[in-house]
Design a protein around this nucleic acid. Structure first.
Lengths: 256, 256
DNA sequence: TGTTTTATGTCCAATATCAATCATATATGC
DNA sequence: GCATATATGATTGATATTGGACATAAAACA
C-alpha cells in the first residue's frame, strides 16, 4: 500500500485527522503529508482544513443523502420535535429510513426514553448505537444505497411478524390529489406493508413535499395522520381538510 | 434548542466543522463558538483541532469498536489481503461483523468485483454503500451496540434461508485447546449457525487471538480454515497442524 | 428601578499552521 | 557508473487561529 492509500484509509477509518497525526502514523514529515493531501484534495477524495484533513463528503456516506438531509433542515427538526412529543415510554415504534425521520431518531438519541424501535434505515439504526434503554431491531434484506435503507421481500416478510404502536413514515412526494409517492418501487411496496402493521400511523413531510410527484404510488394520504411545517400553503390546508386528513402543523419559529 | 445542542447536532451530522462555519450556521461570533466548544470539550463530547472541532470518538460510532479496529491493524490488513485473493467474481459470500472482516470489506470496496454479499455487520454494510456491482443483504434482528452487529433469533432464522460459497468469520478468541470463543452469547449462537450455511468456511484471526479465552464457545477451530499472520508462534503452528487445521499465514512485511 | 451577574462581541499579542524555497536523499534512464 | 529526474525533509516569512483582556449588552435579582 502506498502512502496515498494509507492516508486515504486512515482518513476513511477516522473521518478526520491532523497533519501531525498523519505524519506520525506514516512516519513521514509534515511537508510530505501536506503534499500528499494536496494531491488527494485535487482528486476530490478529501477536504483540507487548517491543521488537518477530513474525508470528503460522499467518500464515507452517500452524498445525495447527506445533501437531502440538510435541505429544509429546520422544518424537519420542527416536525421531528412534534413527533417526539407523541412518543410514550416502553412503546414499540417503527422509524422509516427517510431524512425527516432521521431527525426524530436524533432527538430520541439526545433525549432518550425506553423504547422498542424497529427500522429499515441503517442511518437510523446507527443513531441508536450505545443509547441505553433502547431495544433496536433492524429489518433484514437488500441494502439500497440511495438512502442506506433495507428493502425487498425479506424485509417485507419480517414486517409481517411485527406489530407496533406507532409508525413514522417519511415520504418522497405528495401528489396534488393527495397521494403519497416514492422514488423506488421496493421502498413503496415496503411502505405500504408498514402502514398495515401499525396501530397509529404518522407521515412526516415538510411542506415542500406537497404538490410534487415521484414514480411509485404508496397510499392515499388519509391512510395516516400528517405532521408538516408552517410553510404549508392555505390551499393545501384546505385541501387536506377536505380529504379528511388529520394534520398537525409544526411551528418553524423565527430562526433555526 | 440551545446553542450547545445546535453545535452538538451540527457536529454530529457533519462529523467535523470549522469554527467559522459553526459561527455562520449559528449566527454567533467566533469567540462565542470558541467558548461553547471549550465547554463541549470538557464534557468530552467533542475534540477540538486547530481551526475547528470534530465529534468525539464514541459519540458517532462506538469507542471500543474503533479502538479494536486499530489494534493489530497491519496484521488485519495482511490477513484481509489473503482473504481477498480467495474471492471469485459473482459468488455469494458472508462477512461477519468483526474488525478483521471489516478490513476485507474495505478491500472489496476499494477494489470492487461483482459479488453477492451477506452480512450481519452494520459497519460492513455501510462500507458497501454505492459500490457498483454488489448485491448486499443485511440480516435482520436485534442491534448489538458493542460491534454494531445484528444478532438474535430473527437473524438466525434468516440465515436458514441463505446458502453461500464462502464464510469469513472473525473471532474474539481461540482457546489453548483450539476452540473458537466469543464474548457474546447471541453472537456465538449466530456464528455457529453461519458455519452450517457455507460451502467454504474461513476464520480470520490475527496471531494475538491465539491462546486467549472469551466467554461463549462457538466451535472447534477445525470447523473452518484459518487465516492468520506471521506473528503466530511455532508452538501454535505445531498445535494447529496436530489438530488438522488448514492454516494460511499472511506475511506482515516489514512496515505497515 | 437600580444593581449585580452573566453572556457575548471586539481587539490584540502569542502561537500554530501554511506554502514556497532550498538542500539532500533516493530512484530512474542512459 | 554517472547524470538526470523525482521525492522527501528542513527552513522561513506570510497568514490564520487562539485565548486572554476589556467593553458592552442582556438577563437575573433585590
Amino acid at each position: 500500500m502506498d502512502r496515498l492509500d494509507a492516508i486515504r484509509s486512515h482518513l476513511y477509518a477516522n473521518g478526520f485527522s491532523t497533519i501531525q497525526a498523519l505524519a506520525d502514523a506514516l512516519g513521514a514529515s509534515l511537508a510530505t503529508v501536506r503534499r500528499d493531501l494536496q494531491i488527494l484534495e485535487q482528486e476530490g477524495a478529501i477536504d483540507r482544513v487548517h491543521g488537518g484533513a477530513r474525508i470528503a463528503d460522499g467518500s464515507s456516506v452517500e452524498v445525495a443523502f447527506q445533501e437531502r438531509e440538510k435541505r429544509h433542515l429546520s422544518a424537519k427538526r420542527a416536525i421531528a420535535t412534534v413527533a417526539y412529543d407523541l412518543l410514550h415510554p416502553r412503546s414499540a415504534i417503527f422509524l422509516d429510513a427517510g431524512t425527516t425521520v432521521l431527525q426524530l431518531a436524533r432527538l430520541i438519541r439526545i433525549n432518550p426514553m425506553p423504547l422498542r424501535i424497529f427500522t429499515n434505515g441503517l442511518t437510523v439504526a446507527q443513531e441508536f448505537l450505545n443509547v441505553p434503554n433502547l431495544e433496536v431491531v433492524l429489518l433484514g434484506g437488500q441494502l439500497r444505497s440511495e438512502n442506506a435503507s433495507i428493502v425487498g421481500p425479506q424485509a417485507e416478510a419480517m414486517l409481517e411478524t411485527i406489530w407496533f404502536d406507532q409508525l413514522f413514515l417519511g415520504v418522497s412526494a405528495v401528489s396534488p390529489d393527495g397521494t403519497i409517492y416514492s422514488v423506488d418501487s421496493a421502498e413503496a411496496s415496503l411502505n405500504r406493508r408498514m402502514l398495515t402493521r401499525s396501530a397509529n400511523r404518522f407521515v412526516l413531510a415538510d411542506s415542500s413535499k406537497f404538490g410534487t410527484m415521484a414514480t411509485y404510488k404508496v397510499a392515499p394520504l388519509n391512510a395516516a395522520k400528517v405532521i408538516t411545517d408552517s410553510g404549508l400553503s392555505d390551499q393545501w390546508r384546505g385541501e387536506l381538510a377536505g380529504l379528511g386528513v388529520d394534520v398537525t402543523i409544526a411551528d418553524l419559529g423565527t430562526k433555526e
